[in-house]
Amino acid sequence: MTLGFRTIKEVPKDEFLAPGHRMCAGCTAATAIRQVLKAAGRNIIVTTATGCLEVATSYFPQTAWRVPWVHLGFENTAALASGIESAMKALRRKKKSEENPHVIAIGGDGGTFDIGLQALSGALERGHDFLYICYDNEAYMNTGIQRSSATPYCAATTTSPPGKRSMGQKTQKKDLVGIAVAHEIPYAATACPSYPIDLMNKVKKGLEVEGPALLHILTPCPTGWRFDISLGIELGKMAVLTGLWPLYEVENGVTRLTVQVPKREPVKKYLELQGRFRHLTEEEINRIQERADRLALKFGMGPLRQ
């Protein structure tokens, strides 16, 4: 396995996601994809599901993509990637082509957790050699902040509003990496652009393994989570430091925490930065703290800072 990046100075200066795209100010999904492309290099083909990233980077006649890029639909980007990967394989075997690019499929949480889950499961199960990236901003942000099955417990969205009979999102976020690992794929991991070296090395690993790999990236969204646009990277850090977003990888079934948190911050510090949790009472905050404690126990993170 090639050595990963050790410091930010080793990261290539190439920019494959051009500046000037239409993502919101402070959007960390754009930061995440910029990091993904830096780690992946030029010999790639990217597919992207319908969503924020797709509409904001490919508005004709402009494009922000300096690498080959294809968008087809909302729910089928893993299937599209399957077709590209298989065709390249067939063409090489039949000596009609020598091209051997990495294939990277990107979807948001809606396009991955909800409408695209079937196509993703199919592609993972069939063992295509590709990297699937879910940038997770925890709701349908492109259509105006509607809840998805990645929206965390109690978060306010336009379709899970708090009210007399509601505290916001009623359900807990699905375990996407768990679902991916259940397909016995060689590599799956979580990441966050607030930890760029960790993220980029996971991209490298995901591309290097033979077969499918999945990277689940938490991308704080100032528009949907309602926080100041200067705080995106801080929010990602707080998600990790509270234990709500453990950074780990599962390599051939073996789970390893990649960023240790010796002393966890209370979840309250993460929640109070965001307008979507403004309506929470102590009771809900405690429940979310309990979830962070459970995750910490599961992944071997340190105790809560007292």
């Binding site: 294809v70 893993a78 599209l80 077709g83 298989s86 199919g122």
Partner: peptide, 27 residues
């Protein structure tokens, strides 16, 4: 001599066909 993709639905069948066709493969 072909890649046979056992897709999980017709929706994915046509989606995979589009991807494969864009690479210059006969599909």
């Amino acid at each position: 001599e072909a890649e046979y993709i056992n897709v999980e639905s017709e929706h994915s069948a046509m989606s995979a066909c589009v991807g494969a066709s864009l690479t210059g493969a006969r599909v």
